[in-house]
Amino acid sequence: MRWDVVWNNIDYFLWGSLNFDTQNMRVTGELGGLALAVVLAALGIFGAFWLGLAAGLMRLSRRAWVKAIAVIYIELVRGTPLLMLIFWFYFLAPIVLGTAVPEFQSTLIAFIVFTGAYVGEIVRAGVTALPKGQMEAARGTGLTHFQAMRLVILPQALRNMIPSFVNQFVSLTKDTSLASIIGVNELTNTATQVNNRTMNAPFEIFITIAALYFLICWVLTATSRRLEKHLARYQARGR
């Protein structure tokens, strides 16, 4: 067993080549490893939330063309492997856009577009799960459809959706590993780099990074479960 290989590179796995130069009091190197994976996932879920919210509400719209856009987006993305989407944004977006998109940004966009479709479905399910009377009552008090949505429906629906969002966040955290395929220096990439250089400890290296991912995802999953129990008490359900 060569756990020393893991030990010698653990800082690289955790935060890449980032280093604090104590002599000149400045930060050198670049963020990578687990820290970059977390940054990617956090930015990704933030973007996906807003995109998904829009897509989910559009899918509930009564205007056919608005609904059609959302349905096409959601179904197209959900039917495509994430890896394909990453390749599309990375290799092919420049042909259409005319400029190069750096790999970090291009994977981030791919993650947002991908996760946004799933969040859209969560939003739709969350809103439809509320009793119909809620909307009718809100409209009855004189609110417009938009106001009723914003002030009455969404505050309730979003709270019920929190566990699903956290689950989606866990998925996205795992999915950030795919960024390594086009060279973003996140955790999986740091692992393959070190593995390629040392070549004597693949078992140790991959077990270690699996454990690192597990730690983050498991904490999130555990949180989600506690939230689920906690929130269940407040749920207003139909039927």
Partner: peptide, 9 residues
């Protein structure tokens, strides 16, 4: 071209 063990560059 490879990542140096010490400097991580």
């Amino acid at each position: 071209g490879y990542v140096d063990e010490q400097s991580k560059q």
